[in-house]
Structure formats: structure tokens, C-alpha cells
Design a protein around this nucleic acid. Structure first.
Lengths: 214, 214
DNA sequence: TAGATTGTTAATCGATTAACAATC
DNA sequence: TAGATTGTTAATCGATTAACAATC
């Protein structure tokens, strides 16, 4: 199977295209050109065309792409159609917000439950999702073959909790804790660190202000 | 003033160094070499050295860097010491989680209040932060000179709300809505889209599984 | 046919890595 | 002094952009 390897940068942009295309659906227009798409998203048109070429063969000169087809191809490529089960570990405010967020279904992610060290948090949330005691983590992950875990515990116990997740068979971790995780080679970590985003934003803001005050 | 422009990639890594250095403080060790730091974070040692050189002059051959000094320099550079006020717009679960998260203070961000279109959500949270009706947005932002806004509304009203934030004088937006925002040239947007992270994670997971099944 | 738009090949740009001289 | 470690200059790598041929 030729899983043509795709660059990380392109992969990051694909969901942006998908998002925009979906927002176009109610408008009723059937086709879109890479040029138009690039303009709307403030990207280079060659970049858009190259990115789209990596998931679709359906671009037609003069008319562009069929929007619904492109959406379908993007969703398939991104795996939004075959659902993966996931768990949230750490049922603090952020953890519970993610647990109850119903938008993940659109991205092929089904959060089945959350876990917390504080047994007092066990129970069922507004939306009917269960929060279990951490003790149940290993058994439940193994039984349901959970491969994706969302880590939302404080930094100081992030590594210890991460180790337990790995032991439970989790292969991919979305890490919201402001901590660097050490994992075995076969386990993936994607850091979702708000501090990092903030750093970039405030640095750029400072530069903007300096520039505009000259 | 020589605001030596720093690459975006480096800027993204600085908070990671800072985070790790802080976690080292309780250990009592006074110095650290770029080599050690690189090893701990799974990065190249030249990269670490180059990144650190962009914020510090204090590296000494043979001994490395004084940890506390390096922390100080990183915090100054990242602006964690001069606090910026910010508001959250959209008091849903995520918005309220961010509003009540007390970790932002470490990053030089002080969230003063949240706003929501649903006046029924107005009030005070557990941690004493106020949620106001959206109507108050413009007046309060102007009065407090708010320049940073955190956007946590649903995708379908993200652009409209963003426009109001811009009109209120906000210059930097941390966007959690899964939508592409169009803003004037002088306004910065940093997208914090979980779908994107998820796309990368699940794609890499798939590749890992394919590879390991060969 | 003419022209808009596609997909691709070549050139440029930026970031990472390798090599090395400087120094405590 | 010797060697660990720094900071920098040059080489490599990857991603973006520009140029262009193909085509509906």
C-alpha cells in the first residue's frame, strides 16, 4: 500500500481547508478553485494546490474541485470517518470540558470516559459521560483497546500519569499538561501547550507595537 | 533598540526549555549544559545552544549555564514578568475552564473577565472571576486597554465575535474556535485548533501501526 | 479556439545539522 | 595543560514559492 508520506506542514493545513470547505456548503456553490480557496484563507495558491494534490486527483482545469468530493477525500484522508476511541485522563476543568465537548465526533474521535485520581470526581457528567477512578484505567483501556489518550493533569504528575497510560496500551497522547513527556519510541506525543502559543502571540504583539510606534 | 528578530521555531521551543529548567529547581543543582538539556528534551544539542544564545550571553564553557539566570532571561524574553491583561470571549465549558485556570499567571497573562452572548451566564465563577454580557465587551476592553482576547465561541459565530473584539481594540487573538478568522493587518491571530493536532496525531498513529505490522 | 486553472519541475528561502575554532 | 563545553561559520535538508507545460 502506497501510503505516500505527507509532510507535517501539509498535514497541519488539511484540516483548515476542510473546515473552510464545510463552511461553504450552505452557500450551495458546487465547485471551488485553489485560487479562491487560497485567497479566502490567506495562503499561497500554489501551496493550496500542492496540498490538495496530495489527497485528491479530482481537480479539473478551468472549474477547480467539486466541493463535496474534496470534503469527502479530506475526511477520509484525515481519518474522520473511521472513529477512534479515546480517554481523557485528569478530570479537572479542562478535562471535563473536553469530555463533554461534542465536536470531537466530527474529527473521528469518540471520547468514551475520563479518569481522575480523586475518586470523589467519579460519576456521570451533564452529557452522560463517565468519570472513573484512576484505578480503573489499565483495565478499561485494555478491554476497549484504547489507543488515544488526552492528558489533562497538572504538570507535576504528568510524567507519572503518562507512564500509566503507556502501560495501559495507549499509543498516542494529546498532552495538555505544561510538561515534557518521556515515552517509549513507539508512543506518540502531540503537545498542546497554551504557554507556547501565548509566547508566540505576545512576542509578535510586542514587535507589532514597537514597529507601529516608530 | 536591537530587538533581534527571533525565528518562530526557536520561539516555540523557548517555553519548553523554561518549563524544564523550572522543574529542575527543586533538585538544587545550580548549572546545566546545553548537552544535558538537549538529552532530557530529546532535541539536538546544537539547536539548544543556538536557541539559548538568542536569549542569553551567560553560557560558560565547561560549566554550562546558571539555571536561575537562564530562567530569569527566558522569562524576561518571553514577557512572563510584565503581565498582560486579557479577556475570554465565550463562556462555554472551555471558556470557563480557561477563565478559572490559575496557571496563566506564570505566563504573564492575567485574565480579567469573560463575556457571553447568553446573559444568563453572567455572574461570578468559583475563583471569583466575572462573566459579563457581551454588550459590555467594547466598553470594558476600551476602559482597561485590553489587547489580548481568547476566543472560545462556536465556529459559526467566531468571525462575527472576532470582528467585535477587533473593534474593541484587541490586537492579539488566541483562537480556539475551529474557524479561520479574517482580521485587519495589524491584528494577530494564533490558532489553537485541536482538530489540527488530532489530525497529526492520528495520521502518525496510523503510520506507526502500518509500519509495525509489516 | 482562448483562457482559466491544474499539476509539476526548478529555484529560492529558511531552518536544522555538522564541523570547528574559542575559552574557561 | 587537557578536555568539556560554548558560540559560530559552512553544509545540508526540507518546505515554500516561482515558472511553466498540460488540459478542460
Amino acid at each position: 500500500m502506497a501510503t505516500r508520506s505527507i509532510s507535517k506542514s501539509t498535514l497541519q493545513r488539511l484540516p483548515i481547508y476542510l473546515m473552510h470547505l464545510k463552511s461553504l456548503l450552505p452557500g450551495g456553490q458546487s465547485h471551488i478553485s485553489a485560487t479562491t480557496l487560497a485567497l479566502a484563507l490567506g495562503m499561497g495558491e500554489v501551496q493550496v494546490r500542492k496540498d490538495l494534490a496530495s489527497v485528491s486527483e479530482a481537480g479539473k482545469p478551468k472549474v477547480g474541485y467539486v466541493i463535496t468530493d474534496l470534503i469527502e477525500e479530506l475526511e477520509n484522508f484525515l481519518g474522520y470517518n473511521d472513529v477512534d476511541d479515546a480517554v481523557v485522563v485528569g478530570a479537572g476543568k479542562l478535562g471535563r470540558a473536553l469530555l463533554d465537548y461534542n465536536g470531537f465526533a466530527n474529527y473521528g474521535l469518540n471520547i468514551v470516559a475520563a479518569f481522575d485520581i480523586d475518586a470523589g470526581k467519579s460519576g456521570v457528567t451533564d452529557t452522560g459521560k463517565s468519570i472513573f477512578d484512576m484505578q480503573k484505567l489499565e483495565e478499561l483501556c485494555a478491554r476497549l483497546c484504547i489507543r488515544i489518550g488526552i492528558l489533562t493533569v497538572p504538570a507535576d504528575c504528568a510524567q507519572a500519569v503518562c507512564d500509566r497510560m503507556v502501560k495501559s496500551g495507549i499509543l498516542a497522547i494529546l498532552n495538555f499538561a505544561p510538561a515534557h513527556l518521556i515515552v517509549p519510541e513507539n508512543v506518540l506525543v502531540q503537545n498542546e501547550n497554551i504557554a507556547t502559543s501565548l509566547a508566540i502571540l505576545s512576542n509578535r504583539l510586542k514587535e507589532t507595537i514597537i514597529k507601529s510606534s516608530i
